[in-house]
Design a protein around this nucleic acid. Structure first.
Ligand SMILES: [Mn+2]
Ligand SMILES: [Mn+2]
Ligand SMILES: [Mn+2]
Ligand SMILES: [Mn+2]
Lengths: 222, 222
DNA sequence: TAATATTTTTAGACTCATCTAAATTTTTAA
DNA sequence: TTAAAAATTTAGATGAGTCTAAAAATATTA
């Protein structure tokens, strides 16, 4: 029904619209897919034919409900497989993305749902990203960034924005993972860098760039 | 390196040669792959280019060592995933083949080996087929068929030749699965049908066709 | 051995997905 | 409000994999 390539385009278009809250442009899609704008135009025509997107030439593209369903199903599979790879097979969270890129295209609703059940219906993947349920509904995640927190607050790391192995490795060296609790001591006005303390009373500095790539939840605030 | 299609051809060629112990013909491959002979010829040229098979026009084809490695790796993945689907996700043995056909092409040696470890290094898949280890070595399986057994013998079902859902469903109705123990009472000369008794003392008849699709091990014979 | 049947290959066309180069449309800004 | 810049689309080509129809090679059998 939908080819592997079509699925990847739909996922890209869906996440682009999601993150910017507007229609996706040909160039944006090309950049995200690491391909040429002309190839994107070709594909948009095909996806439009199949009623998976709403597309008119020279106008940015919108995803249809039908296309959105496909995209969400791919995201669900990607995140469930990542969870499996980390929790069952003991991969590191920096090693699973590329494998999940392949596994997300395995076609079997039964498989996806049985995997979900086997894993205990996890709500978030190893990077803290919400896993849609079999109806396509995403669990809610706090979307506050560490860079937005006030001095003196205690917080828990609940997700990462950047999924690159280099960033994840860096966090590993800092001993930061999902669930890590930190206390924000100082926020330097000059460069917005943060001084934080962890549970082992280790004190260290995080740059504004790092802080803006970490999702957090304030402790003792429900 | 090798495309999904190439991998499927190599697997087909490998198993054809395996089962008939001679080179594979274009027509045989076409039949197994459910495609046209002309498509097979095209592919054989390409595989020959890549040194994955030895092929000369009008001569039947042989697989190279390089090609064999690929084929065995696909078979290893296929059988490990089938084991996972049945043992971890509770699929029936008649439901897993098509999903494994997809999963066998996931490319990651690390994934395969971690899956193997997670499953406890199984030696046989849910149909009793041997799973090659990470060196490509197959464990040995008794290859005696139920149709070759003498009257009066006690035996254990250890594998099936036919993997089709219809045959597997039939066995399910007969309460036969891997590990089932049977005692062979009578062998009718007329049609080679067998009368067997199971552990619950149920007596039933199996046709020659059924018996020749069941691998068995004689009890009390090591 | 010659005719016939079967197997296999070639020729040519099609689809999907991609690319480069050129043309067109839209946006920006002088 | 034009001219330049940027974004987008079209035109034309390529490669993988497939197909049908026709040709060529091989195998069978009279
Ligand atoms: Mn990922
Ligand atoms: Mn993730
Ligand atoms: Mn199978
Ligand atoms: Mn099997």
């Amino acid at each position: 029904m939908t080819s592997l390539t079509e699925e990847n385009y739909l996922k890209a278009i869906y996440t682009l619209i999601q993150s910017t809250d507007k229609k996706a442009s040909t160039n944006e899609i090309a950049k995200k897919m690491d391909t040429k704008a002309s190839s994107v135009t070709d594909m948009l025509k095909r996806l439009n034919e199949k009623k998976l997107v709403d597309y008119e030439r020279y106008k940015a593209v919108k995803i249809t409900e039908k296309g959105e369903k496909v995209a969400i199903s791919i995201i669900r599979k990607h995140r469930l497989w990542e969870y499996f790879l980390v929790e069952s097979l003991n991969f590191g969270w920096d090693e699973v993305h590329d494998i999940a890129e392949q596994l997300e295209h395995i076609e079997s609703v039964e498989l996806t749902n049985k995997l979900d059940e086997f894993l205990g219906f996890p709500k978030f993947d190893p990077h803290g990203d919400p896993i849609p349920n079999n109806k396509g509904v995403f669990p809610r995640r706090e979307n506050q960034k560490l860079s937005e927190v006030q001095e003196g607050k205690e917080l828990i790391i609940i997700g990462v924005e950047d999924h690159s192995p280099s960033f994840l490795n860096f966090l590993g060296e800092m001993n930061i993972q999902l669930g890590t609790e930190l206390s924000l001591r100082t926020k330097h006005q000059f460069d917005n860098s943060l001084v934080v303390v962890n549970n082992e009373n280790q004190k260290f500095t995080l740059s504004q760039k790092v802080a803006s790539n970490l999702y957090i939840k304030i402790k003792n605030e429900d």
